[in-house]
Amino acid sequence: MADDVYKIQNAEIKPDALYDAVLADSDGAVTTFAGVVRDNTKGRGTSYLIYDAYNEMAKKKMREIGDEIKDKWDVDRVGMLHRIGRLEIGEISVLIAVSSPHRKASLEACHYAIDRLKQTVPIWKKEVWTDGGEAWIEGDPSAPGTSRDRDI
């Protein structure tokens, strides 16, 4: 049965499973977004990435984003998966799927979901570069609309 999904997982993300999870007979559209590991950051070669999460809070914040979406758009179900651990180039780090009766709602809601995830969900990325360097990447805490401005 179709339902919302909010999950942090070590296992490889397979797009079809989330697509199937959010789709029901009453839907006319499903929008999916996959974030994928790129082979460089501004030209510096990436070897692989490590993702870490505050699992329980991350799931809670993803559910809050899903609830925000349902307040703003006529959507049926929301699925958000984020992978943690070591990810290789080309692998999916985050997958979002939104189903709705009509296409506009799911397209807009899916875009909103990934933007909000990058602002509020406690997940971190470490880049390990081909030149041997590595660093935890930090979002911009002063950017408008980040979690710093909310929930306080």
Binding site: V94, W124, G139, S147
Partner: peptide, 9 residues
């Protein structure tokens, strides 16, 4: 929890 600026996605 002490939470550095997040960088998921």
């Amino acid at each position: 929890a002490f939470i550095p600026p997040v960088s998921g996605g």
